[in-house]
């Protein structure tokens, strides 16, 4: 079977962008972004717009800088010793790289979920969900915390599975549950954007589908960016796709970006077509 046909089967019909939450634009504009690890340049010249109410997938071969790119969006890239970024990333019109902007505040507005589930092992399920609320913020009442925990766990469809295990260790859950717990932890502080760096790479197919369903329901409230090496996942679960690659002459750069349907079915660049049809990477 022609692999491109199979993607056509996967991609849902074009869905209009979900209506934006009031007050926040939640859109991101990346301009001229380059990221370095010491002297080594990992990505360069990235221009990408990420709109609200849609899921944007970043795909590309291993080592093309997908993870580096997504980590630049909430200034997590720079926490690695010697790493830095140049260019601009604008959230709702403010450049997050402007001197004097506080990465701590930025990360509160732009949440992140990692490749491997990383619940805090010394904390219970309940304490994991409110971990972000307990950070340099005034203490809230138990009722408030209870409400946040239930709401966050319900939005990741985990409440019914863990409501009797709220005070067990977060690490006692299954891998898929742990990853949903980490998503609940990220959205408990109500960020505007949710970044997911290959969130399903350590999960089985069933758990993967659950996360994808979940993302679909979360895109109403959060701008979602997902890095994935799984093209079926990008085809199934995203509205827009950005394709990155690195070759002998260039470090990681953006080849093209657009609606997922177009990238998968009518890519403009032959390299995109090669990658998607499995001839590359």
């Amino acid at each position: 079977m022609n692999p491109i046909r199979s993607f056509a089967d996967l991609i849902p019909d074009a869905v209009p962008a979900a209506e934006s939450r009031q007050g926040a634009e939640r859109s991101i504009a990346i301009r001229g972004l380059a990221a370095y690890y010491g002297k080594h340049k990992a990505i360069e010249g990235i221009d990408l717009d990420i709109g609200p109410g849609v899921i944007t997938a970043i795909i590309g071969p291993s080592g093309c800088g997908k993870s580096t790119l997504i980590r630049c969006i909430n200034r997590m890239h720079e926490v690695i010793a010697g790493a830095y970024a140049t260019g601009s990333v604008t959230l709702d019109g403010t450049d997050i790289y402007t001197p004097g902007s506080d990465p701590v505040q930025i990360r509160r507005r732009i949440g992140m979920v990692f490749q491997k589930p990383n619940p805090f092992p010394t904390r219970t399920v309940y304490e994991n969900v409110i971990a972000g609320l307990r950070l340099n913020l005034p203490r809230k009442s138990k009722a408030d915390y209870d409400e946040v925990v239930e709401r966050s766990l319900r939005s990741v469809a985990l409440w019914d599975e863990v409501k009797d295990k709220l005070h067990d260790a977060g690490t006692a859950l299954s891998g898929g549950q742990q990853q949903r717990l980490c998503i609940a932890r990220a959205i408990a502080i109500k960020p505007e954007v949710l970044l997911l760096d290959e969130p399903c790479s350590a999960l089985d197919p069933t758990a993967t589908l659950k996360i994808e369903d979940l993302l679909f329901s979360l895109k109403i409230d959060y701008t979602i960016v997902i890095v994935t090496h799984n093209m079926q996942q990008a085809a199934r679960a995203s509205d827009r796709t950005a394709f990155l690659m690195a070759d002998e002459n260039h470090v990681g750069h953006l080849v093209e970006a657009g609606p997922t349907r177009e990238i998968f079915l009518k890519p403009k660049d032959s390299r995109t077509e090669d990658y998607i049809s499995g001839r590359l990477g």
Binding site: V104, M112, F114, N118, F120, L135
Partner: peptide
């Protein structure tokens, strides 16, 4: 693990 520290940083920890 780095993931533990980054998990906390990503929530907006100092």
């Amino acid at each position: 693990p780095r993931l533990q520290k980054e998990g906390m940083l990503a929530l907006g920890a100092t």
